[in-house]
């Protein structure tokens, strides 16, 4: 296990997971040796810019990788047993019943010609073998759970606002009583007020159903509101992992620090725009050494040549040459 400070057996244990996408002869490493553990009932934020591998990580865990993806190293363990994440058919009993996903932009993926109650009842019938009547009752219950008046169940998706559709998607994800819900940018397309309502809903559901939540977002302030722990990804690697309080108070990785500083914060009283210099990394031509070194203000000689490993640091983990653990216990590196 990678996180030795945790003594409980984790609900989900991702170990040294790498995923490659094959693309016209080239192969592209979308995530590289990602390791983390998720405890039951924990809410973890996964933050990074577009293309940093957040969705790939989530899809790998749910066994939903696209056909041109290949798991090139590592494993995912759920309650101690290994998940067949690259076998779609073998994952079927696990998916939705243990781990379910609210997809990025999914609220536009509802079938426009079916009433929402039917769309929520469908997975109950397919997955739990319920009869139509039972499934409809369950769908009603789920609508209530996500705060949609039950009589709106007969509405078609286009009759609902973006926020309501996102609630429907959450209801569908909860249909089979999973213990892990992965939200892939569940609020990105929504405005602040609706976003606040959805985040509040997720928080309530989490404590009510003791769900573990993986919240994927590129907005650090969203994580600050509703997660216990946050992992920062950059170019397919986790570069920092720690509790929300610690990371916001004392970011260790330079990228995390710059990310936090680039969020406008009226409370600080300082009107200052602080861009992170440079461009996002190119995964096909990944920078040597630390992938952040072309943009890092603290880059040193060693950064361009040696990949910093994700080491235990204090109570969290960080992958930066500035913070080398004194114990030097490195994460196992897969060939």
């Amino acid at each position: 296990m990678t996180n030795s400070s945790q003594d409980k057996a984790p609900l989900l244990d991702v170990n040294c997971l790498s995923v490659d996408y094959g693309l016209k002869g080239v192969s592209l490493r979308a995530i590289d040796r990602v390791s983390f553990a998720l405890q039951a009932g924990e809410a973890v934020g996964l933050v990074g810019e577009s293309g940093s591998g957040k969705t790939t990580t989530a899809m790998a865990i749910a066994g939903l990788l696209s056909p041109n993806a290949r798991v090139s190293s590592g494993e995912v363990r759920y309650r101690g047993s290994r998940l067949p994440i690259d076998d779609d058919a073998a994952m079927r009993p696990h998916r939705w019943c243990e781990t379910s996903v609210v997809f990025q932009g999914a609220m536009n993926a509802l079938n426009p010609v079916h009433r929402i109650i039917k769309q929520i009842a469908e997975p109950c019938m397919l997955k739990l073998g319920m009869s139509r009547g039972e499934a409809t009752a369950r769908a009603r219950e789920l609508l209530g759970l996500v705060g949609i008046p039950t009589d709106r169940g007969s509405a078609y998706p286009h009759e609902l606002s973006g926020g309501m559709r996102q609630r429907v998607m959450i209801a569908m994800a909860l249909a089979c009583r999973p213990s892990i819900v992965i939200g892939d940018e569940p609020t990105t397309a929504l405005d602040v007020i609706t976003q606040a309502q959805i985040l509040k809903l997720l928080g309530e559901l989490r404590s009510r159903l003791s769900l573990a939540l993986i919240l994927i977002t590129h907005d650090l302030s969203v994580v600050a509101e509703c997660c216990d722990r946050v992992m920062i990804m950059y170019a397919g690697r986790i570069v920092e992992d720690g509790t929300v309080a610690e990371i916001f108070a004392q970011p260790k990785h330079p990228y995390t620090r710059l990310l936090i500083e680039s969020i406008p914060n009226p409370a600080s009283g300082k009107k200052m725009i602080r861009p992170i210099p440079g461009d996002p990394p190119n995964l096909v031509n990944r920078p040597s050494g630390c992938a952040f070194h072309p943009r890092c203000p603290s880059a040193m000689g060693v950064c361009g040549t040696e990949v910093p490993s994700l080491d235990q640091f204090g109570r969290g983990r960080v992958a930066c040459h500035l913070h080398r653990s004194s114990r030097g216990d490195k994460v196992a590196v897969h060939a």
Binding site: L220, I263, P275
Partner: peptide, 10 residues
């Protein structure tokens, strides 16, 4: 992305 936002604002 957040990291590019500030550049455009600037």
């Amino acid at each position: 992305d957040v990291s590019i936002r500030a550049q455009i604002l600037q």
